[in-house]
Design a binder for these strands. Sequence first.
DNA 1: GAGGCTAGTGACAGCTACTGACAATTGACA
DNA 2: TGTCAATTGTCAGTAGCTGTCACTAGCCTC
Lengths: 209, 209
Amino acid sequence: METLRERKKQRTRDALLRAALELFTTRGYEATTVDDIVAAVDVSQRTFFRYFAGKEDAALAVREMSEARFVEAVRARPPHEAPMQALRQAVIEGWDGLSEAVSAVVPVELYLRMYRVIESTPALLAAHLRRSMEAEEKIARILAEREGVDVDTDPRPRLVVALFAGVIRVTERQWGTAAGELDVAAIRELTARYLDQVGPALAEDWRTR
Amino acid sequence: METLRERKKQRTRDALLRAALELFTTRGYEATTVDDIVAAVDVSQRTFFRYFAGKEDAALAVREMSEARFVEAVRARPPHEAPMQALRQAVIEGWDGLSEAVSAVVPVELYLRMYRVIESTPALLAAHLRRSMEAEEKIARILAEREGVDVDTDPRPRLVVALFAGVIRVTERQWGTAAGELDVAAIRELTARYLDQVGPALAEDWRTR
DNA sequence: GAGGCTAGTGACAGCTACTGACAATTGACA
DNA sequence: TGTCAATTGTCAGTAGCTGTCACTAGCCTC
C-alpha cells in the first residue's frame, strides 16, 4: 500500500465489494443490479467493471480467496502425508486462520452469509463449480509432483482430488441447507465427519452396518 | 406425434436445436448469437425463447437427454447390486443405446462434437456442472431408497454419488481433451478404466505401487 | 514547484441475452 | 364454415457488459 493512488484504488474496490455483498445477501443476487451497487458507492458503472469482470466475479471474490488459501495449504503439507491425508489436513486446518484473512476485507459474518447465497443462486453455484474445477486441476498437479507421478498418464491425482472435492461439495451443501450454525467450527466438524464416511459409502453393502 | 400441430412444433424445435448445435460446433458458442440461430431456421427470436429457456439451454439439451437416461438406468438396476456397482453398470451400459436415442434428433457425430464445445466453453461448463448436481441429488435419493436409508440423516447416498460423479467428470475431461477417438466405445472403455482406479487413488501410498 | 505523463474515472453509445404485452395467424373441432 | 385455442410475430423495454474518448488527479522529472 505505497502510493496514494494505490490506496485509493484499494478503497474503491473494497467499497464496491462490500456494497455488492451487502446487497446480495439482503436483497438477493438476481434482484441486485450493477446500478444498485455503483449507486451505493457513488461511482460510475464503468468503474465497477474495471474492478470486477462481472457481477458474478464480485459475488465469488471471497470464495476465490479461500480457495487460493486452500491450494497453498495443500502445497505446504509435509511430504510424508498420503494424498488424501494431506487434503484432509489442509481443509480442516484451513478453516482456522481464514477468519482473520477475510475480515481484512469484509466482516466474517457477511462472508458466511454470502456462502449461502451462492449455494442457493443457480447462476452463482454454476460459476462457483466451474472455478472449483480449476482449483482442482491445480491441486492435482501439486499432488502429482509430491508423489512423483505424471498427471497426464496417471489418473490418480485428478481422481483423488475429484473424490475429495465431491465430499467437500456435499459437506458445504449440507451446511448451507441446514438452518443453524453460521460459524466456522460447525463446518469444520462436519467436514471431518463426512470425510470419515468415504470408506463406508464405498462399502459393498450398506444394509449390514 | 398425433396432430399436425404437435408435429409442426416438434419440427420447429428440432430445427432450432440442430441449427444451434451446428453453429455452436463450427463457429463457437459465444460467437453465435440467438439471431444467427433463428435466421438459419427463419423464425422470430421470440419463438426460440419459447422452446428454450436460453441459449445455454439449447446447448445443453443433448446432455440433458443422456443424463435423464442415466438416472432411469440407475433406477432400473437390480436391487442386489451394491450402490457403486449399480452406478457403474448404469453408466457403462448406458452408452449403448444412447446413439439410437440421440440420432432421432441430431446426428451422433454432432452430439459428440458438442460435448467438446461444452467442455471448452466456460459458461457452458459451469451450467453443465450445476445441472449435474441436480441429477446427482436425484440419484442419491434413488440409492437411498434402494438401500433403505434416509438421505437426510445418512450422508452415504450423496457421498457415493458425488464420488462417482467426480470420476465421470475426470473421465469426460480426459476424453474431451485427448485429441482422437470421437466414438462411444472409447469413452466407455475409459470410464471403466478410471472407475477401477478409485481404490488405488485412495490408497495410502502411491509410491510403492 | 511547474509542467508533462499516465492511471483512473465518468459519460455516452452500442451490443446481446432475455422478457412482457398484445396482435396476428393457423390448426382443431363442432 | 365459423369459432376457439394454441402458436407465432412484432414491438418495446431491461440488464449485463464493452468500446471510446475526454477529463481529472496523483506522480515524476527537471
